[in-house]
Structure formats: structure tokens, C-alpha cells
């Protein structure tokens, strides 16, 4: 599997990463090299094997429905890049 620069551009858009034109070639090569490594997986027949998403076979523990958080807005917004009137601000979104 070899990635073309166009593929890298598409993935970069999905991941919302700005990647300049000069690095895009390098990413394409690097990523393709890793994919060669990853393709070793195809050596193995894994039919019928349940995928393993977690190292331990545990199930989800549930929390009681209780409110135990307090308002920490000031503390949280103190480190925010742009807030006004308690709102986080981003460039205007047109819907």
C-alpha cells in the first residue's frame, strides 16, 4: 500500500491538520513505509477470531445518577484562548 500525496491531503483534512506542501511528500513516504510494516498482519489468517478492544475482559461499571460536579467555569475559562460572557468563541460558523 502506497499513499499518494492526494491521500495524505485528504487524511490531513479529516484530521484537521495543516500540512504544508513540502512536508506532504515526506509524510506520504513515511506513512507508506509504516503501512508496509503493518501489512505483515495479512500473513495471518484471523477468520473467526473476536477482535479485542480491551486487554481485560471486563464490563462497564455504572455510576449512580447523582450530580456531584460544581461550577468551575471561571477556573476552566481562565486558561481558554477566547471567551466572552461565559461563552467560548470561535470564528463565525455559517450554517
Amino acid at each position: 500500500m502506497t499513499l499518494k500525496t492526494e491521500d495524505v491531503r485528504n487524511i490531513a483534512h479529516l484530521a484537521r491538520l495543516q500540512v504544508d506542501d513540502e512536508s506532504i511528500e515526506r509524510y506520504a513516504t513515511d506513512l507508506s513505509n509504516v503501512l508496509v510494516l503493518v501489512e505483515q498482519l495479512n500473513q495471518l489468517d484471523t477468520s473467526g477470531i473476536t477482535p479485542m478492544a480491551h486487554p481485560l475482559d471486563a464490563t462497564q461499571r455504572l455510576r449512580d445518577d447523582a450530580v456531584n460536579e460544581t461550577d468551575l467555569r471561571d477556573k476552566f475559562q481562565n486558561i481558554a484562548p477566547d471567551v466572552k460572557n461565559g461563552l467560548y468563541r470561535v470564528p463565525k460558523v455559517i450554517e
Binding site: L44, I49, T50, P51, M52
Partner: peptide, 9 residues
């Protein structure tokens, strides 16, 4: 998915 299967192995 393939990786998760090999992970189990």
C-alpha cells in the same frame, strides 16, 4: 479490526 484480532492471538 485485523489488528484487534491479532491482538487477541
Amino acid at each position: 479490526l485485523k489488528a484487534q484480532q491479532v491482538r487477541r492471538l
